[in-house]
Computed example of a mutant assay.
Amino acid sequence: MYVAQIMILWLWLYRDDADKLLLQMPALLTFTSDFGVWFGYSVGVLWSLAVEFWFYITFPALLFIARKAGYPVTFFLVLMVMSIAARLNQTESLTLAYYHQFLIGVIIALLVDDQKVPKFLATNIAFNSALAVLAICVAIPITARNFAGYFQGTCAAFAAGVLVCYWLQRPPRASLPILQGIGTISYSAYLLHPIVIDYVWKTKQHLPSHIPTFVAITLGASLVTYLAIERPFIALAHRHTRFGKPREQGVVQGANTPAAL
Rank of each mutant, 00 (worst) to 15 (best):
I6K: 10
I6H: 13
I8R: 14
I8N: 14
W10D: 02
W10P: 00
L11K: 08
A18F: 12
D19R: 14
L21Y: 09
L21F: 10
L21W: 10
L22V: 00
M25C: 10
P26M: 08
L28P: 06
T30V: 13
T30P: 15
F31D: 07
W38N: 11
F39K: 04
G40K: 06
Y41T: 08
W47V: 15
S48Q: 06
S48L: 05
L49P: 02
E52C: 02
W54S: 05
F55T: 03
L62G: 05
L63A: 13
L63S: 06
R67L: 13
A69C: 01
Y71I: 08
T74E: 14
T74K: 14
F76V: 05
L77I: 14
L77W: 14
L77P: 05
L79A: 12
L79M: 14
M80K: 09
V81Q: 05
A85W: 08
A86Y: 10
L88G: 11
Q90N: 13
S93C: 01
S93P: 03
H100D: 03
V106L: 13
I107K: 12
I108R: 08
I108P: 08
V112F: 14
D113M: 11
Q115V: 10
K116G: 10
K116S: 15
V117Q: 02
P118I: 12
F120I: 03
A122I: 11
I125Q: 05
L134P: 00
A135L: 01
I136Q: 00
C137Q: 02
C137H: 03
V138A: 07
P141E: 00
T143E: 06
F147A: 15
A148G: 01
A148K: 01
Y150H: 14
Y150Q: 05
F151T: 02
Q152M: 05
Q152A: 01
T154N: 00
T154C: 03
C155N: 01
A157D: 01
V162K: 03
L163R: 11
V164Q: 04
L168N: 02
Q169R: 09
Q169F: 00
P171W: 10
P172E: 03
R173V: 12
L176V: 14
L176R: 15
L176Q: 14
P177I: 04
G181M: 02
I182S: 12
I182H: 13
I182P: 12
G183V: 06
G183N: 04
T184W: 04
I185N: 00
I185Y: 00
S186I: 04
S188T: 13
S188W: 11
S188R: 11
I195Q: 13
V196P: 07
D198R: 04
V200M: 01
T203V: 12
P208R: 06
P208K: 05
S209D: 07
S209R: 07
S209A: 10
S209W: 07
I211L: 10
I211N: 01
P212N: 06
I217F: 01
I217V: 10
S222M: 01
V224F: 12
T225L: 07
L227C: 13
L227F: 14
P232T: 02
I234V: 12
L236Q: 12
A237P: 00
H238Y: 15
R239C: 10
K245S: 11
Q249L: 15
G250L: 08
V251D: 12
V252T: 06
G254W: 02
G254Y: 00
A255F: 07
T257G: 06
T257K: 09
T257M: 09
A259H: 06
A259L: 11
A260Y: 08
A260C: 05
L261V: 13
